[in-house]
Write a protein that binds this DNA or RNA. Sequence first.
DNA 1: CTCACAGCTGGAGCGCGCTCCAGGTCAAGC
DNA 2: GCTTGACCTGGAGCGCGCTCCAGCTGTGAG
Lengths: 133, 133
Amino acid sequence: MSGADSTPTHSPGETVQLTGFSLDTLRYYERIGLIEPVHRAVGGQRRYREQDVEWLGVLRCLRDTGMPIARMREFAEQVRAGDGTVAHRLALLEEHDRGVADQIALLQRQRGRIREKIEYYRTVVSADVSTDA
Amino acid sequence: MSGADSTPTHSPGETVQLTGFSLDTLRYYERIGLIEPVHRAVGGQRRYREQDVEWLGVLRCLRDTGMPIARMREFAEQVRAGDGTVAHRLALLEEHDRGVADQIALLQRQRGRIREKIEYYRTVVSADVSTDA
DNA sequence: CTCACAGCTGGAGCGCGCTCCAGGTCAAGC
DNA sequence: GCTTGACCTGGAGCGCGCTCCAGCTGTGAG
């Protein structure tokens, strides 16, 4: 680590730690254009800058909420295109947000059913211990 | 529909409507043992009984909450085994429920970040339509 | 009788999102 | 100099959960 750099960077290994993505996934994301070609150190090893890591954080957020890779790429392209795409990006995120809300609602509803079943099983188990344990 | 039956059953098509699973998925679930071999009408066509549809509802619930097929099969086998597996089933559901809770928490956290981004984009869009960050 | 249609079977194929691999390079430590 | 270890590349492979297909059969309408 050369700490005197004006722009601190991260080795691939560090970036794995920071983002939770695997080395393979980081390279995969770069290949398919989810992230721009990453700067290289002498020798060809990747050096992720702060902004790269931040962008990876955004990707992590979108992935965690189930956005498909294709849509993420669409988003990434718009971010790269910059000017004039903000409205489009906003629309994309708003739509995604609605999807996430639905997803959460579904999970909560179904979780309710699961917990009912758990409750039922608990009464069964506590009422009759004869067959088990 | 022959309404005089003592045990009303559902055609495959009806079952698709009732459960939201596709015809192929229903057959697939049967093949892999998620549901027991379904009764047949003369001619070999499947006839799903009420209890089959209810069980499919349980499977729907588990799938919606992201339980892997393998785990669902484990659960199905225990249900079939009946007595003595209740404690085990309870444990399985409790563990799954914790997973679902985590999933919901993660979604909510990440959704927060998305909404922040949306808010930010809104200020950008309404403040000035020509500039870029 | 003919036809359309819903469903049947076994098995192949697919889309997604990684994940793994062989074979190589470079930098640092002993 | 030699070894170790992190990382490189292009491309193949994989696990999951379906989904599709060809070719067939039984049922009901006209």
